[in-house]
Simulated scan of single mutants.
Amino acid sequence: MTDSVLRTVVRRETHSPRTGAMLVVVVLLILAAVYAAVEIALSLAGRPPLLVTPGAAFDALAGLPSALVPAGQIVVGAVIALVGLIVLVIAVAPGRLSRHEMAWGERAVVVDNGVVASALAQHLSLASGIARENVVVGVAHRAVDVTVRPPLGIPVDADRLRQIVEDEVATYRLSPSVRTHVRVARPDDTGKENSR
């Protein structure tokens, strides 16, 4: 497999398509077109409109700039521009899936954030001697958050835990890279956590 094909596959596996947003916009446009068609058909058949006749709607739309005061025009324009900007950002910005690219030799694999969190929690538990159920790891797009809750009376070196986590995360070679945050939360220290 060539590098460009591999990059394309990794990108497809780590970024979400914008199908949902596109589907919402298309459904809204179809509903608007169906409503306009129904109003036109009712008008041609001489029946009363559902909301407004096409002629009255067109006249109201054409007279809208002169009917609004300048401040109202600015507000309406700003709202339309904001909606357009939101749709543009949704269309252009890449969506993210909860996955990372992990370098594996000369290859790259796509790994789910839950798998990274589970592996890191297991490694920290084995390396520190703290029970696995007392280690909670969360992996986000740019951060790894580790919370260790040792039982009462068990001494814990927060700096050593931090070093274990940072060394293990470094071996994963994740892309995009992540920052690590390690907290030691004791039941008797509520509100006084060691963090970085």
Rank of each mutant, 00 (worst) to 15 (best):
residue 116 V to D: 15
residue 167 D to E: 00
residue 94 P to M: 01
residue 106 E to C: 06
residue 77 G to F: 08
residue 140 A to E: 08
residue 159 D to K: 03
residue 76 V to H: 11
residue 135 V to W: 14
residue 154 I to E: 15
residue 175 S to A: 09
residue 72 G to E: 13
residue 69 V to W: 09
residue 175 S to R: 14
residue 139 V to G: 13
residue 115 V to H: 08
residue 143 A to Y: 12
residue 116 V to N: 13
residue 114 G to N: 05
residue 105 G to F: 13
residue 170 A to G: 11
residue 76 V to C: 00
residue 140 A to N: 10
residue 135 V to Y: 03
residue 161 L to D: 00
residue 95 G to H: 06
residue 146 V to T: 13
residue 83 V to M: 08
residue 96 R to A: 06
residue 94 P to D: 09
residue 163 Q to Y: 14
residue 162 R to Q: 01
residue 165 V to F: 06
residue 105 G to I: 06
residue 123 H to T: 13
residue 86 I to C: 12
residue 85 L to R: 00
residue 161 L to Q: 12
residue 135 V to I: 13
residue 98 S to W: 01
residue 103 A to H: 02
residue 105 G to C: 09
residue 83 V to C: 14
residue 181 H to D: 11
residue 70 P to Q: 12
residue 87 V to A: 02
residue 75 V to K: 09
residue 177 S to I: 05
residue 65 P to D: 07
residue 116 V to Q: 05
residue 141 H to V: 06
residue 131 A to T: 11
residue 145 D to S: 14
residue 172 Y to S: 10
residue 69 V to A: 04
residue 190 T to M: 07
residue 148 V to Q: 01
residue 146 V to Y: 06
residue 78 A to V: 14
residue 183 R to N: 02
residue 147 T to K: 13
residue 77 G to C: 05
residue 138 G to F: 03
residue 71 A to Y: 05
residue 189 D to A: 01
residue 125 S to R: 11
residue 155 P to K: 14
residue 75 V to E: 12
residue 108 A to N: 04
residue 102 M to E: 05
residue 146 V to Q: 02
residue 141 H to C: 09
residue 162 R to L: 01
residue 118 S to E: 10
residue 137 V to K: 00
residue 180 T to R: 04
residue 147 T to R: 06
residue 102 M to P: 12
residue 92 V to G: 07
residue 172 Y to L: 10
residue 69 V to H: 10
residue 148 V to T: 05
residue 71 A to P: 00
residue 165 V to P: 15
residue 176 P to Y: 08
residue 179 R to S: 01
residue 186 R to C: 06
residue 155 P to N: 05
residue 158 A to V: 03
residue 119 A to Y: 05
residue 112 D to K: 02
residue 184 V to K: 00
residue 89 V to D: 11
residue 189 D to F: 09
residue 114 G to M: 00
residue 91 A to Q: 02
residue 133 E to W: 01
residue 177 S to A: 09
residue 100 H to T: 04
residue 70 P to E: 08
residue 72 G to S: 06
residue 93 A to C: 10
residue 161 L to W: 00
residue 128 S to L: 13
residue 193 E to G: 01
residue 97 L to S: 07
residue 173 R to K: 08
residue 156 V to S: 13
residue 184 V to R: 02
residue 92 V to Y: 06
residue 103 A to C: 06
residue 111 V to G: 01
residue 120 L to Y: 07
residue 155 P to G: 00
residue 178 V to E: 11
residue 118 S to A: 15
residue 110 V to C: 07
residue 154 I to L: 03
residue 176 P to L: 11
residue 93 A to I: 02
residue 81 A to C: 14
residue 107 R to A: 12
residue 184 V to L: 03
residue 161 L to T: 12
residue 181 H to R: 15
